[in-house]
């Protein structure tokens, strides 16, 4: 009975697979990573401003011309600055942003180990 349920779930999911297959995967990936300058706080993908619509067209055009994702980012960064990217790359401005959380994780683990696990006497 239990297994039957799993099989049903599985079949159902399999069915959905056929529906998915997003054709322009990289297009939506790129536009979701771009921040709209007009309605700031929204991504280009989600925004309907004139600016966002133009950027969407531009991205598909660049993709057609054989630009890679990174090349498109570099192009737009040069025009509008770092700010337009939602994904802050790893560079001198963002060392702390990326490393601080990881550092905290390691420190936290060390504290737990030292205080609670190893010191058993």
């Amino acid at each position: 009975m239990k297994y039957l349920k799993y099989i049903l779930i599985f079949l159902f999911l399999f069915d959905l697979n056929l529906l998915s297959a997003n054709e322009n995967n990289s297009h939506s990936k790129i536009t979701k990573n771009l921040r709209c300058l007009i309605c700031q706080g929204q991504s280009i993908h989600d925004s309907d401003s004139e600016f966002a619509n133009s950027i969407k067209i531009l991205v598909s055009k660049k993709l057609n011309d054989g630009f890679s994702e990174d090349q498109i980012y570099i192009f737009l960064k040069e025009k509008y600055g770092e700010w337009i990217l939602y994904d802050p790359g790893y560079n001198k401005n963002t060392y702390f942003l990326w490393l601080l959380p990881l550092l905290m994780f390691i420190i936290g683990g060390a504290i737990i180990l030292k205080r609670f696990i190893i010191k058993k006497n």
Binding site: E82, W83, L85, Y86, D87, P88
Partner: peptide, 10 residues
């Protein structure tokens, strides 16, 4: 004084 965005990918 540099402006960046930290969004979903991060």
């Amino acid at each position: 004084s540099e402006k960046i965005s930290v969004g979903p990918p991060f």
